[in-house]
Simulated scan of single mutants.
Amino acid sequence: MSKHAIKGKTVLIAGGAKNLGGLIARDLAAQGARAIAIHYNSAASKAEADATVAAIQAAGAEAVAFQADLTTAGAVEKLFADTISAIGKPDIAINTVGKVLKKPFVEISEAEYDEMTAVNSKSAFFFIKEAGKHLNDNGKVCTLVTSLLGAYTPFYAAYAGTKAPVEHFTRSASKEFGARGISVTAIGPGPMDTPFFYPAEGADAVAYHKTAAALSQFSKTGLTDIEDIVPFIRFLVSDGWWITGQTILINGGYTTK
């Protein structure tokens, strides 16, 4: 079996209870992962986390779930420690955590900026750090960012601006971890058809986003469907290991870089 196969591997997914993270967890279980730890942020997601754990187990893999707010280094350290204690050192670490804010630049408060930085940048930094410390050799790290990193647009300064540092975290970590065979990548989906997307957008904006990609007419919703993102993540954390240090925008032609 290839050392880059998913079969038999141990996986940690931050934000793995629902939406894209939950689908990734189910997919990697179906691909033969040995054990998967999923993280969820708050008690409001516990039922979805439990359902994802049950689906992973039904596919034949071990599964555990941990609740945590990952906006402190200590919380991320604990997540990795708990994962290792429960299912062993990860081979694959995927971080889908993020928060959207769509607001005029001059109306963004310091508290909002601090929260966006903590969720989108700080948590990603320490997740990659802990992955570098604890992943097995030949491991894979993948972080979810946003296709807005390739956009020229107003109102997303706090969202895209606090995801942007992850692009450099990815480059730097890939150089440092490469000696152990660890690849580090980031994926920037277009606006996805999930509950994460709609609260930040008005009806006019939703209508625009549903037609903005070159391939919008071929999507079920006009938006990026999470089912179309999962195969790329699966590839990057397995046979696609030779891609490292890259931020890849996957969006049907919504933005380019």
Rank of each mutant, 00 (worst) to 15 (best):
T224G: 06
Y152L: 13
P199V: 06
Q246C: 10
Q31S: 11
I92N: 01
L101M: 13
I24E: 00
D239G: 14
A5E: 13
A51W: 04
R180I: 03
Y113F: 14
T52C: 14
F235C: 03
K257D: 08
I94R: 02
G245R: 03
Q57R: 12
F196E: 03
M116W: 01
S216P: 04
A14D: 05
K78R: 11
A73F: 12
E130F: 08
A17I: 08
F218E: 07
V119R: 00
K122D: 01
F196P: 01
F127V: 06
Y113L: 07
I187W: 00
G240D: 06
H209V: 03
K129M: 10
L144I: 15
A49T: 02
L23H: 07
P165V: 07
K210W: 13
Q217C: 08
G253K: 06
A164S: 15
G139L: 06
S123E: 05
E227H: 06
V100E: 09
K3Y: 08
K99V: 11
D91K: 01
K163R: 14
D91R: 00
K140W: 08
A61S: 11
F105L: 15
I226T: 10
E176L: 14
H4Q: 10
T117K: 11
N19H: 06
E48T: 12
K89T: 04
G178W: 08
F155W: 13
A164W: 03
A75E: 09
A81W: 08
E176Y: 08
R171W: 11
F232Y: 15
A61Y: 05
K163Q: 08
G132L: 07
S123Q: 06
Q217Y: 13
K18N: 09
N19Y: 09
V230I: 09
E77S: 04
F126R: 01
H4S: 11
L135W: 06
G202I: 06
G188E: 00
G8P: 00
I250H: 12
S147D: 07
A30Y: 10
H4D: 13
A43M: 14
T224P: 01
S238F: 14
A164L: 10
K133G: 07
L23K: 09
T71N: 09
F80H: 02
K140G: 09
I243P: 07
L12D: 04
F127R: 03
T211K: 14
G22H: 00
T96F: 07
A59T: 03
V237T: 08
G8Q: 04
S121D: 12
A186Q: 07
A51D: 12
A75L: 02
F126P: 03
V97Y: 06
G188D: 08
A43D: 15
S238I: 11
G240V: 00
Y113I: 13
V11Q: 04
I243H: 09
E115S: 15
D228E: 15
F155N: 14
E112T: 05
G22D: 09
S109Y: 10
R171D: 04
K46G: 04
G188R: 02
P154N: 14
A29F: 11
P231L: 15
